[in-house]
Nucleic acid binder design. Structure first.
Lengths: 149, 149
DNA sequence: TTTAGTGCAAAAGTTTTGCATGGTC
DNA sequence: GACCATGCAAAACTTTTGCACTAAA
């Protein structure tokens, strides 16, 4: 409990620093949104973030959540995922390149380590006259818990 | 021109057969939608398909396009892509497993051949207690034409 | 003729935008 | 004080649904 609160403060500090590094004002609302993403292992939509923070007593508006997420993903500070049809979800990610393993049943996300795709990709892209600049690999599966149930 | 028309007829026949194979009635609207996707190398949204077919004189309704695309993708006859944020686009694909290489500039799509990812994936998923059931790899890049410009 | 599919319009949902107000530098 | 960010409400979009009507089996 105490550890959780201390961790929350530290995450807020990290969020503030990240915002400042982007040249954006670290307002209370922005810090709240980014800190929430930093403390969440799954990806969240703007709607989910808004509801969650509102329930927790925050007075922030939905438009602000959208604007903040747009700002952060535009600067590359968070990833915009689109594995949910018709909506956009966001996830905080460190600086390293990685991929996600999503459970089809419980939607939990596991982050995979650095990938070994790049050499293969570069070769295949070149075969088609392309230069590969980015890639996204999403793997769906069933986690151990859901397979048991 | 003549070749194009003959090809169009053939695609319509193929669309009709595909629909029948799914146990769905091959109505004029469904055939039109599926044939359009079969003749298009890029992916299209429901809105784009609707506009395009309307301009061509078809009287089909937007809801029908959505229902047809839902049917086809639900049965696995077409792929639902989500590389455009906030909207769903669809693409006809053969039966084989493959991946897409999308040009960031002109949005053209190249289809990559069978992939060599599966062994790597199975191992990595198992490391996290998962069984990998499906994966999607989308590669963004720049095609030769756009790089020149 | 029985069933499935369509069109239209309304509804539901997500995201964006305009503008007056409030907080930061 | 100047400027940026916020909240609210309205607007713009995409997608879904209800229902009377039409076409296919």
């Amino acid at each position: 409990m105490l550890a959780g609160m201390a961790q929350g403060k530290q995450v807020e500090r990290q969020a503030r620093e990240t915002l400042r590094a982007l040249g954006a004002r670290p307002t209370a609302q922005r810090v709240t949104v980014l800190a929430e993403l930093m403390g969440e292992s799954n990806d969240l939509t703007a709607q989910e973030l808004h509801q969650r923070l509102r329930r927790r007593g925050s007075r922030l508006g939905l438009a602000t959540v959208y604007r903040t997420l747009g700002l952060l993903s535009g600067e590359g500070a968070i990833d915009a995922l689109s594995h949910r049809p018709g909506e956009i979800s966001y996830r905080w990610c460190g600086d390293h390149h990685h991929h996600h393993l999503v459970c089809s049943s419980c939607q939990n996300v596991v982050e995979l380590g650095d990938c070994e795709l790049t050499p293969w990709l570069d070769r295949v892209a070149a075969d088609h006259g392309f230069v590969a600049t980015a890639h996204r690999l999403d793997v769906a599966g069933l986690c151990a818990d859901c397979r048991a149930a």
